[in-house]
Design a protein around this nucleic acid. Structure first.
Lengths: 327, 327
DNA sequence: CTGTTAGCGCTTTCAT
DNA sequence: ATGAAAGCGCTAACAG
């Protein structure tokens, strides 16, 4: 195919009969260029199979060569969440198309210094913050503006990409109500995570509309917490007839905890989750839940920072109900 | 903390009272250097908090700035396997410490050209091949030697990091035998994947030793295939009293398929998996399996290519039996 | 709109 | 063992 070493910008410029500077302008699409120059350079690029050298570009423009993914949480264990794996997989795939790499970082909650340090490191091309809190987002330096995106809640300066868990929650809770459940409890996400607030509000609204009281216990998106929450709920409100968890992992834990308590699902208590992870269909009973298009969200967020597209301040991705056996 | 922009090698050299060339030799550990120079430079590095600029280094030494992770498989869907997510998460975390990023690539089986193309792209610092086949490994160019590692089977030139599924399989199958099972079937991995061969051989050996016939059906590591395999097995060998799948995902599918058939587990048929994924303890019945230290394996493999450590030709990580309810 | 001229921060011959 | 000097491939002022 290609004879020897890959073509450089000099080769392109020479082939197009223009200076290297002009070739650079055309390739990057940054400066001005006559349509004639544009065409000749474009042709040369194709003919030579030119691909810009990411390292050289990063060095000259101090633009960085890595897309950092920072996950906020109490412990480094947040990096092990399958959700993070899915975001990372998607981002790494998108980044690969542009010859950029992805690195993964844990951001201890309440230690915003770390984010500033990360942002200050050279070689940083862009930043994706997962599970952001507003205070943490405030600490991102302004010179990174336009190269940051949040998967979760955003700020005026940081565009946000997230699942629409408000309507998703409404769908699930309304389904519960429509199947005759009235005493519905909810297991939330971590209390410090603002993007779960919309879901809690949606749950409260539907409950109010249907005349039921609200029963909320805090969760942390883990299965272990789900099992404990199930016990807590059945002790505090023994007549509970449905549990909605804002995470399938937690819902699976709830299923486990209820089973240990001898409570039948969905006979005595209906259980619903959120995310529609692969295992939701494999549990017994199979889990009723609402979709979470993680791959689409991560793709959009990664593209936004990689392509410096700072338009849309906040994008919500729809979530749809999936009815199985548990509710 | 640090006042302004980060220190460069020039700053270090000046502070240490040596030339930039000497400072470079000390920092990289490559060329010769007097112990006196070594000490002074080391001190300056610490004092200034110097961190080499990955882009500049990559440009000057043509060493690349990315760790590529290539996953071999029939379709791009292999990238969605949670196993890949775990490998990627780990590698991205290790890479972050060295300011390098990772990128993710799908390598279509039987199209080795793609690997050569990937390897030829500039900016490639190292390569990790997941689920490698020997022919694919043969196509990695020799100038990448010492910067490639395989997670799975290796070759003379490519060091291998893998779980010891031979002893892992022995442990599981012997457990099955010791609990009275004799007619044990096995669902393997994809037939083109050589690293599953050792497991199949181990299964065959234990069966021979215990006087049972072998019953092998091919799998592909997915849950869907597990359900189909369960039906296939019960049709071909109705008296089967145990199924061992070389993947928890598949075993979970087997559980599902058996349930659909009205077969009770572990009453009629015992089921065991391999990997000990998080959901193994959440299924009903909870899955008996053998551990797979994916994070340790990925860490070792990533370190090997990042640190250019080509020693050990093959490293096997131990797998241990986890007995739960299904067998 | 275009070409010339400097670097970006580092590695690497090549003399010394 | 060390230093001087020459780039790696690209972008970004600055003149024209």
């Amino acid at each position: 195919m290609k004879g020897q070493r890959s073509a450089t910008l000099d080769d392109v410029a020479r082939a197009a009969g223009v200076s290297r500077a002009t070739a650079s302008r055309v390739v990057t699409g940054q400066g001005p260029a006559s349509s004639r120059a544009r065409d000749r350079v474009a042709a040369a690029v194709i003919e030579l199979g030119y691909v810009p050298d990411a390292a050289a570009r990063a060095l000259a423009s101090r633009s960085g060569t890595r897309l950092a993914i920072a996950v906020i949480g109490h412990t480094a264990a947040v990096l092990d969440d399958p959700y993070v794996g899915r975001v990372l997989t998607t981002a790494a795939h998108i980044a690969a198309e542009r010859e950029v790499g992805v690195s993964l970082h844990w951001l201890p909650l309440n230690e915003p210094v770390t984010l500033a340090g990360l942002a200050g490191s050279r070689g940083l091309g862009g930043l994706l913050v997962v599970n952001p809190t507003r205070p943490a987002l405030e600490t991102v330096p302004r010179d990174l503006r336009g190269r940051v995106a949040a998967i979760g809640v955003g700020t005026r300066d940081v565009p946000s990409f997230d699942v629409d868990n408000r309507t998703g929650t409404e769908g699930v809770v309304r389904h519960l109500v429509s199947t005759g459940r009235r005493r519905i409890a909810m297991v939330t996400g971590p209390s410090w995570l603002p993007c779960g607030d919309r879901a809690v509000e949606a749950y409260q609204r539907v409950m109010r509309d249907s005349g039921g009281e609200t029963r909320v216990v805090p969760g942390d998106f883990t299965a272990a917490r789900g099992a404990a929450a199930a016990a807590e709920i059945m002790t505090r409100w023994p007549d509970t007839d449905a549990v909605f968890a804002l995470s399938d992992l937690t819902a699976l834990g709830v299923l486990d905890g209820l089973h240990a308590l001898g409570v039948s699902v969905p006979g005595d208590v209906a259980v619903a989750g959120f995310d529609d992870i692969a295992f939701a269909s494999l549990s017994r009973p199979a889990l009723t839940t609402s979709t979470h298009p993680v791959e689409e969200i991560a793709t959009a967020a990664a593209r936004a920072v990689l392509d410096r597209d700072g338009s849309a301040p906040a994008t919500f991705f729809p979530s749809t109900l999936v009815v199985r056996e548990s509710a």
